[in-house]
């Protein structure tokens, strides 16, 4: 798997755009836009952003338009609010989720 090419530590706030390739781990706060290969939001980490990645793992808090082109994992400790789009979605028991889910599975939108 892609190694962590970046870490936003605890107590760090980033406001703006984070782009590139590779994986980013967030234990601090990110606000704005994130476009990468993989994003992991740790427990205690907060992401309030439009996220466009291939793999997204949320154990902390995330809000915004969250798009994972491959897979989205919402861990038990996570709090997620917003629109989520991913072909594969895992939500663990205990996670708090509020928002819309699009899984592009071919189920008509109006079901």
């Amino acid at each position: 798997m892609a190694e962590a090419t970046g870490t936003i530590g605890k107590g760090i706030k980033v406001r703006g755009e984070i782009t590139g390739t590779g994986a980013l781990e967030v234990a601090g706060e990110v606000e704005g836009r994130v476009a990468l290969d993989r994003l992991v939001v740790h427990g205690g980490g907060t992401v309030a952003a439009d996220v466009q990645v291939s793999e997204l793992v949320i154990a902390g808090r995330a809000a915004g338009q969250l798009v994972a082109s491959k897979r989205l994992e919402v861990r038990a400790s996570a709090q997620v609010e917003g629109d989520v789009r991913a072909p594969s979605l895992v939500v663990e028991e205990g996670a708090v989720f509020k928002g819309r889910v699009h899984m592009d599975t071919g189920i008509p939108e109006d079901v």
Binding site: A4, T5, G6, T7, I8, G9, K10, G11, I12, K13, V14, R15, G16, E17, I18, T19, G20, T21, G22, L24, A27, G28, G32, L36, H42, G43, G44, S77
Partner: peptide, 30 residues
């Protein structure tokens, strides 16, 4: 649940990453 590991307090902006905006850090940034 907030596991405080050393790695958590470090911030590394890796070679393949661009940040355009503001970074406000309590700890070190590489």
């Amino acid at each position: 649940m907030a596991t405080t590991t050393r790695q958590d307090e470090q911030t590394i902006i890796g070679s393949t990453i661009t940040i355009d905006g503001e970074i406000d850090a309590e700890g070190p940034v590489m």
